[in-house]
Computed example of a mutant assay.
Amino acid sequence: MKMVMGYVAGLLFGLGLAISGMTDPARVLGFLDIAGAWDPTLMFVLGGAVVTSFVGYRLVFKQNAPLFGERFQLPTKQDLDSKLLGGAALFGIGWGLSGYCPGPAIASIGGISLPLAAMLVTMVIGWFAAQRLSR
């Protein structure tokens, strides 16, 4: 059941990205183009995600345990370090250059293009680099 719920959550996430237009890198790049043809769509999508998460966490934490698991899996590390800041910077640079972040990139695989393929390849290289650096 846990795997089914993971699939349902991923499907809902992918559908949300597609319906909101966030699988189109031009929308993301339009949001980052403040001095040009600025597109505020991403701000509303992110705002909706923040509100949903805020309400969802309040409801979930009233429960003793998750519905389909033994315990809640929450991050324990709360300090900022160079790995976190460096990773966030690389993520932002990659997102700004390509217009894709990992979720929309994977949701867009059906319409693969050269920029998308380049982003996916560099993302995989980044995963391997992160594993090596964390040892």
Score class of each variant (00 low, 15 high):
2 K>R: 13
3 M>K: 12
7 Y>A: 09
7 Y>W: 15
8 V>M: 10
12 L>P: 10
16 G>K: 01
20 S>A: 03
21 G>Y: 02
22 M>F: 01
25 P>Y: 02
25 P>H: 04
28 V>F: 12
29 L>Q: 15
31 F>M: 13
32 L>K: 00
34 I>L: 14
34 I>Q: 06
35 A>N: 02
35 A>P: 03
35 A>E: 12
36 G>D: 03
36 G>R: 05
38 W>F: 15
39 D>I: 02
39 D>L: 00
42 L>V: 09
45 V>D: 03
46 L>F: 07
47 G>T: 08
49 A>C: 13
54 F>T: 11
55 V>T: 01
56 G>W: 14
56 G>P: 08
56 G>M: 12
57 Y>M: 12
58 R>I: 14
60 V>W: 15
60 V>T: 14
61 F>L: 13
64 N>Q: 11
65 A>Q: 13
67 L>V: 15
67 L>A: 15
67 L>F: 15
68 F>N: 11
68 F>Y: 09
70 E>A: 14
71 R>M: 13
72 F>D: 03
78 Q>G: 07
80 L>S: 10
83 K>I: 08
85 L>R: 10
85 L>D: 10
87 G>S: 11
89 A>P: 04
90 L>R: 03
93 I>R: 04
94 G>P: 01
95 W>H: 08
95 W>Y: 00
95 W>M: 07
96 G>Q: 06
97 L>C: 04
105 A>Q: 07
105 A>F: 01
107 A>N: 02
107 A>D: 11
109 I>L: 12
111 G>I: 02
114 L>Q: 13
115 P>S: 09
115 P>L: 09
116 L>Y: 12
117 A>N: 07
122 T>R: 07
122 T>S: 15
122 T>Q: 09
124 V>R: 04
125 I>P: 06
125 I>K: 02
129 A>D: 09
130 A>L: 14
131 Q>D: 12
133 L>H: 13
135 R>Q: 05
